[in-house]
Design a protein around this nucleic acid. Sequence first.
DNA 1: GTGATTCACTTGTAAAATGCAAGTGAACTG
DNA 2: CAGTTCACTTGCATTTTACAAGTGAATCAC
Lengths: 146, 146
Amino acid sequence: MSRKETINWNGCPIRYAASVFADRWNFVILRDVLFKGRRYYGDFLDAGEGISTNILADRLSKFEETGILTRHQDAKKRSRIYYLPTPKALELIPIFLSIIDWAERHDEHTEVPEAFIQGYRLDADKTIADTEQLIALANAQVTNIQ
Amino acid sequence: MSRKETINWNGCPIRYAASVFADRWNFVILRDVLFKGRRYYGDFLDAGEGISTNILADRLSKFEETGILTRHQDAKKRSRIYYLPTPKALELIPIFLSIIDWAERHDEHTEVPEAFIQGYRLDADKTIADTEQLIALANAQVTNIQ
DNA sequence: GTGATTCACTTGTAAAATGCAAGTGAACTG
DNA sequence: CAGTTCACTTGCATTTTACAAGTGAATCAC
């Protein structure tokens, strides 16, 4: 028996976040964008995680709708499509670093590099800034800025 | 989420975290445990989010398996069941505060109290400690510690 | 120029997860 | 001891996902 009350999800920050990215494939895609420099549709497929093409297309278009990613055509080969993180996506970095920190402490099979996590624990702001730098580099590569 | 694949995530922390809590109902349950003092099975149902009894039971038992919650009988009324957060769950507090911070900035309908979020931005560690205190109080209430 | 290939999806369908309503049994209450 | 509370479980319809196979536009090879 479900005892239902008025459903009011409005304004709850956790519910809002859940609606944007609380899903295992969303986690993987955001990891790829924020930490692995992946930008092309094909990059996400080949990441070895086994995401299906229809699910990937679905998640990418939802990330467009929610303002996390923007979709672009490659300048030199227009059939290639890349996705860039928005500022709203960059602001997820602290969340994901915090998740990495937590997982490193609780997953006995973790492969988080020792130096990385120690650097983060010593100076989180620096790790955030470094991550932003790497993201900017990855963006520059696909947008062919010289 | 509930597929029996425990293998080949290669120690990736984001994948690990995804396997433990990347799901909308998991987000809601953890919010209830960490910030709203909910402990009883019935509390989660009556939270107004509309979770079904079978899904709630499924998620609670998975949180037991993953070491996030522990299940207990109420001392005075043994048919009542409560769930307590483990240290592993408490260590999720920084993640969830970070999520609240992000959502507050991007959800135009946010209802995060101004004072709360400003306090967090001024001194995150204090907000984490305060949250731990409130959790300890909520735990003490159901365990009847005097 | 044309046929093959790359690329980013879309479509079809079976399997799995979810949502909803009802049921169950143990524990408590009057 | 009959009725109620409680924490689930069960059955079933709907929705979502996974997997495989297209599709059509763009590019490449010759």
